[in-house]
Design a protein around this nucleic acid. Structure first.
Length: 760
DNA sequence: CACAGGTCTCTTTTT
DNA sequence: GAGACCTGTG
């Protein structure tokens, strides 16, 4: 009996077809990782391939680690020789060796989204582009897409020749690339396209890697963009032993440049490709699968396939409707709690998925109240926290004096009396002299415009120079300790006495632990290596090292590639999921991508799937409250699979409330929505009235402003905050504003009509 | 030049 | 409801 006997026929075919191009169309839960792992084991054990000659590209660092350890378990040795990594970290590794060939220092820094935002902002200022009616974010998107498509600045300029706006964008693109290069920095997109550039301009470098990578595997192939496709094509061009694994139904990164043609057109690129379909699902019950299949079948652009499972029947899909997002969150928290207890399952067997990060807040709070421990995956990543960025900016400045952005970040942290004006003057001087920002600082005394602040500036540069000398003999961790000591960073946080100062200090400690762990694992690594690792880290990578089993909260995107016995998808509302932009978009592409996202979410569930809907949800801080219809995706699930039929209330039905009705607001152009906000009070009256009618929050059709059944001094109960004493009631035109001193939740001010306070 | 306080914008999704 | 941005004051 060999390790391959446990595979089904299709899986075996995937494992044994080692030569030539292979397209593995692997449906959700069909064991594609298993096939990859066995394939690699087979190559090593049966084909005598040196692990050194195998490359596997995965989507996340976590997936890479998992693949490595599973191969290790399977064959019992030597997996560390296999090159397993993400596209980005693979490119970093290559560029660290050869970046000098394309005009960068090999200790280049990696700019994250925030960094690149800051650069674009500077360029807008510098080029005085306020008059250009285009937003910075949009320009960043255009530049990023261009890079994904391997469109160089020169090409972009050519294409833009006759369009004023496009020409302006080309100008920004050029300036952006110039700035990055000056700073010896690459953004995420550069990592890929610069590697492609390197390979194209230096065939001997490419040949070197082609020689090495005799067997290439790409996971989640449906999410590759054009640049990544080209990179893979180049690498595989010599041996052509390329195995790509993916599922067009799970392509959810089009917004990031993923090109679905890469997978749909694989057979055209490689006409002799072996195509293998994995259609047996080992994860989910029949009911879950039927529901997911029903949804995805509404997409037109897809390779037809249908998943099947041996797990007959199973629980129906639970569907729950709530009046408000608060109640939805409350339900989920308690439902998880009771199911975990009933079934004797750890909380880590449950996950709650949602469309936008903003939804995590309510859920987290509700879980806290219910005593369910949670872990939020994603959101604000550890490395984008202020204090972490500050400390890293010090390290970056010490490591690479060309990184102007890092220098500017810390030049006045802690306060050195160097403000915006001085920074601007220094930048002007740097541009004039054609040297880096930091180099200007070093000669500040000889520059007239900076003479006044020269003392302060010198103190700063002396400090950096001091650290730089230290770097020669110090470990990074010692260096960091000294930075914290000399700058007094932690003391300042402590003195500040900010509420979250303690959190920040703990984060810095966690950073130290991370650095320590990194150098333990990679003894030879340089400071640049660590900084690159930090830049490419995602929260997802850390999922496993949790001591207490916790309920996981994450976006649907973050859930890709994971599976859980019990899954909740919250916020099944039109305008949330599918998102309003996808709904209103002209093309059906965006809606199809949302639908794929829904499919991905549903197929994460093994045994039990719960979908929830909240009629009313506050979006940004209270002013984005809107009533929404049940998600169209719910209506795509056959009723017999649901334990609760949606009370089908199409958006249209809401028109009963007048043509200026609140339900339509999410579907109207932004300008109108904004105009409405300014005249919100009359609008609010309508909302309240409508709310009364729909949810029965107040008795009767009037607003009943006269009859609150509690008054100042009374004890009241709130569904969320518990018991408290009313300390104040203010009459407002539309409602009462009630101030309550809660026993445990502190003092809160709330509108009577929404708060549902009960006298006790 | 720093800082406090007010105003406006933003929300998909992420390597 | 946060975070970026602007403005006035000392």
């Amino acid at each position: 009996m060999s390790i391959y006997d446990t595979l089904n026929e299709q899986q075996k075919k995937g494992v044994f077809t080692t030569e030539g191009p292979v397209l593995l169309l692997a449906g959700a839960g069909s064991g594609k990782t298993r096939v990859m792992v066995h394939r690699i084991a087979y190559l090593i054990e049966e084909m005598g391939v040196n692990p050194f000659n195998i490359l596997a590209i995965t989507f996340t660092n976590k997936a890479a680690g998992e693949m490595r350890s599973r191969v290790d378990k399977l064959i019992g040795f030597g997996s560390e020789q296999i090159w397993v990594s993400t596209f980005h970290s693979m490119c970093v590794k290559i560029l660290r060796r050869f970046a000098d060939k394309i005009g960068y220092d090999t200790n280049f820094v990696i700019y994250d989204t925030d960094d690149s935002k800051a650069i674009v902002k500077e360029i807008f200022k510098k080029l005085q582009l306020d008059s250009l009616h285009i937003k910075e974010g949009a320009v960043r998107g255009i530049i990023s897409r261009a890079k994904d498509e391997l469109i160089s600045v020169e090409q972009f300029e050519k294409d833009a020749a006759y369009d004023y706006k496009e020409r302006k964008i080309a100008e920004i693109y050029r300036e952006y690339q110039t700035t990055l290069k000056k700073n010896n920095a690459m953004d995420f997109d550069d990592l890929i396209c610069n590697t492609v550039k390197l390979f194209k301009e230096h065939p001997q470098v490419l040949a070197n890697y082609q020689e090495r990578f005799q067997y290439i595997h790409v996971d989640e192939y449906q999410d590759t963009n054009t640049a990544q496709f080209e990179l893979v094509r180049l690498l595989a061009d010599k041996n052509r032993n390329l195995c790509v694994v993916g599922d067009d139904d799970q392509s959810i990164y089009k917004f990031r440049g993923a090109n679905i043609r890469n997978i749909l057109g694989f057979e055209e690129t490689y006409p002799n490709a072996t195509v293998i379909k994995l259609e047996e699902n080992y994860r989910s019950t029949q009911n879950i699968l039927d529901a997911a299949n029903a949804v995805i079948h509404n997409n037109v652009r897809r390779k037809d396939k249908s998943l099947w499972t041996r797990k007959d029947g199973g629980n129906p899909i639970h569907f729950r409707q709530f009046d408000s997002a608060d109640e939805e969150a409350e339900f989920i928290a308690y439902d998880v709690k009771s199911k975990a207890r009933e079934l004797g399952l750890p909380y880590s067997d449950f996950a709650v998925l949602y469309r936008t990060n903003a939804q995590s807040n309510l859920l987290e709070k509700a879980c806290k109240r219910a005593g369910v421990p949670t872990k939020i995956v994603g959101g604000i990543s550890f490395f984008s926290r202020k204090e972490i960025k500050d400390v890293l900016a010090y390290l970056k400045t010490i490591d690479n004096g060309k990184d102007d952005l890092a220098v500017k970040r810390i030049i006045n942290i802690p306060k050195r009396g160097i403000g915006a004006t001085t920074i601007l003057k220094a930048q002007v001087a740097a541009d004039e002299e054609g040297i880096s920002f930091y180099d200007v600082l070093k000669k500040a005394r000889s520059i007239p415009s900076l003479a006044k602040s020269a003392d302060k500036i010198e103190k700063f540069t002396d400090l950096i120079e001091y650290f730089r000398h230290r770097l020669e003999n110090y470990t990074v961790i010692d260096l960091m300790d000294e930075i914290l000591a000399k700058t007094g960073y932690i003391q300042i946080l402590e003195e500040d006495g900010d509420e979250d100062a303690l959190d920040r200090i703990n984060n810095i400690k966690e950073l130290e632990a991370d650095i320590l762990a990194f150098y333990e694992k990679n003894e030879e690594a340089t400071l640049s290596d660590y900084l690159a690792d930090a830049a490419l880290f995602t929260d997802l990578d850390k999922l496993d090292d949790e001591d207490v089993p916790k309920l996981l909260l994450m976006t649907l995107h973050a859930a890709k590639g994971l599976e859980f016995p019990n899954v909740y998808i919250a916020g099944m509302e039109d305008g949330i999921f599918p998102s309003s932009q996808a709904r209103s978009s002209e093309s059906r592409d965006e809606l199809e991508e949302e639908r794929r996202l829904c499919y991905v979410g549903m197929t994460r569930a093994m045994n039990d799937l719960t979908l929830t809907y909240a009629k009313y949800r506050l979006l940004y801080g209270g002013y984005g409250g809107e009533y929404r219809a049940v998600s169209s995706f719910i209506r795509e699930i056959p009723n017999e699979l649901l334990d609760n039929k949606p009370q089908v209330r199409r958006t249209r039905d809401f028109d009963d409330y007048g043509d200026d009705n609140v339900f339509a607001s999410s579907f109207k152009p932004k300008a109108i929505a904004r105009a409405k906000q300014t005249e919100r009070m009359p609008q609010m009256a309508k909302e309240v009235k409508a709310l009364n009618q729909i949810s029965g929050l107040a008795k009767g059709s009037d607003m009943n402003l006269g009859d609150l059944d509690y008054t100042v001094g009374d004890r009241v109960r709130h569904i969320k905050f518990g018991d408290g004493t009313v300390t104040k009631i203010d009459r407002e035109p539309r409602d009462y504003k009630v101030t309550v001193d809660f026993d445990t939740a502190g003092t809160r001010i709330m509108y009577a009509i929404f708060s549902k306070l009960k006298k006790i």
